[in-house]
Simulated scan of single mutants.
Amino acid sequence: MAIVVEHDKRKHEILEKSLEVFIEEGYEDVTFQKIADRCGITRTTLYIYFKNKREIFLWSIKQLTSGIEQQLNEIALDTTKSSEESLRLMLKTVVDACQENKSLFSVLLTYLLALHKSGGEPGVRVRRRIVRLQHMLSTIIIRGIKAGEFKKVNVKNANELFYGLIQSAIFRLSVLDEKTIDDIHDTLNLAVNGLLADKK
């Protein structure tokens, strides 16, 4: 059991250091050797954990997004807050995470473009990663509708609206290199305001 724990711990450390290399150098310029060097191990040792650079990159992204998903899940499950508070907090958490990791999103964009050029399907990969986020957003919206906090809207359309705004935020932060997220938060809050049921 101790060997498995040690293996997982080392794998986690490799992923964290690899992410730094991808952010600093960009996906295309990173090599297996550069990752091994950063981790202070040989390429042979690195092959024990991962078969190639692409696998390391995808696991690094998964490790990062899993942490964010855990935060969002805690928000979604917290019934002590109103649906409005939960939705605003969830959207703020997502945008804050996007700002903190905007360099990574630039690398991810390069990777997705390369995948598209090689005949891959970047849309499929992205949809796999966001299905949980969309489920959590839907859960909060449905809860808000049932509680009378939100208007009776089409949940799928509301979800698409918020997801589109999050995509826009990622683009603005990682591609356009916008420095402030105040406008992004304001836009998302305006969209939440549009969901609120009329007070009688």
Rank of each mutant, 00 (worst) to 15 (best):
M1E: 03
A2G: 02
I3G: 11
V4L: 10
V4M: 01
E6K: 10
E6N: 10
H7G: 08
K9D: 03
K9F: 00
R10G: 00
I14D: 01
I14Y: 09
E16T: 05
K17N: 13
K17C: 00
E20R: 11
E28S: 14
E28Y: 08
D29I: 03
V30I: 07
T31W: 01
F32A: 00
F32V: 02
A36G: 05
D37I: 08
R38W: 04
G40E: 00
I41Q: 13
T42P: 01
T42V: 09
T42F: 01
L46H: 03
L46F: 11
I48M: 03
N52D: 05
K53I: 02
R54K: 13
E55V: 08
L58F: 09
S60T: 07
Q63C: 06
Q63W: 10
L64I: 02
S66Y: 13
E69H: 09
Q70Y: 04
Q71S: 15
Q71N: 10
Q71W: 09
L72F: 02
T79Q: 04
T79N: 09
K81D: 03
S82R: 07
E84Y: 10
L87K: 09
L87V: 12
R88H: 04
M90E: 06
M90N: 02
T93F: 04
V95A: 02
D96E: 14
C98P: 02
Q99L: 07
E100K: 15
N101M: 00
S103M: 13
L104P: 01
L108P: 03
L108G: 11
L108F: 11
Y111H: 15
L112Q: 08
H116D: 06
G120A: 05
G120T: 01
P122H: 08
P122V: 11
G123D: 09
G123K: 07
R127C: 12
I130L: 00
V131A: 14
L133F: 06
Q134A: 15
H135E: 10
L137G: 02
S138Q: 12
T139S: 09
I140K: 09
I140P: 13
I140H: 09
I142V: 15
I145T: 14
K151M: 12
K152R: 05
K152M: 06
N154L: 14
V155I: 12
N157W: 14
N159V: 02
N159T: 15
F162T: 08
F162V: 00
F162D: 11
Y163W: 12
G164L: 15
L165H: 01
I166K: 14
Q167V: 13
S168A: 13
S168K: 04
I170C: 08
F171W: 11
F171A: 14
D177G: 08
T180K: 13
I181W: 05
I181M: 01
T187F: 06
L188D: 00
L195C: 10
K199Q: 07
K199T: 11
K199D: 12
K200C: 01
K200Q: 09
